[in-house]
Amino acid sequence: MRVEVLFGEVANLFGDMQNVAYLRQTLPDAEFIETAFADRPFFADNDPDLLYMGAMTESAQRRAIETLSPYKERLRALIDKGCVMLFTGNAGEVLFDRISYVTEEIETDGLGLVPLTARTDLFDRYNGKVLGALFADPEADAVGPVTGFRSQFSRWHGDNEKNAFLTVRRGMGLNEGSRLEGWREKNLICTNVIGPILPLNPKLTEHLLALAGAPVPAAHRLSALKAWEQRVIEMEDPATRF
């Protein structure tokens, strides 16, 4: 099992670095490749089983786009091959067609691998929670509710009616007018759900790892499930504000 972590030195906001820590503890024998901005990505010449990138600042996001630009065809090939890729927070926007940074008055082309756009306003922060279920995934019932949080400057726009990651029961989807969250194409997942999503959802972690060829129990399964179950009960409670 080979897991590549892209730009973990900067893509680690909002606790997202613990997604990687949780994977390391779940997969003690796996090889983890930490790719920094100056490195040639491992995926450029190899097939990782799982590719991960977490939330980052807006300037890091622009540098990530620049750094990954020479490899966009290779990334497209990996998506088509079904490589498991998880992009959390604003990391997914790197793959989008375009990002508008309205505060800084900057327009940036993304890698153009996901037909969505993002609008980032530093003075319009959205904070929220998400209770949802995997969208059009045969394992949705087995995985159960997916829980997490949102804290972002951006809103996503475009059509994800056939390619959503989650059907949102409570919370926001792509933007305030949407109940479909994120983007899913084969095993590529772009989601704005943070938390971090993997330790918060141990069954989702197991599902993704099974897709990546490692059907193993999630680390600290008992305590992770206990915390997840408590969160699900609280989020399902109609008295809980969303």
């Binding site: 909002f14 606790g15 997202d16 670095m17 613990q18 904070n127 929670k129 949080f149 804290s151 943070i194 938390g195 971090p196 330790p199 918060l200 969160r231 609280e234 989020m235 008295a239 809980t240 504000r241």
Partner: peptide
């Protein structure tokens, strides 16, 4: 009547 955003616990 809410669920605290616990991301900070992971930092």
């Amino acid at each position: 009547n809410n669920v605290e955003n616990t991301c900070w616990l992971y930092d």
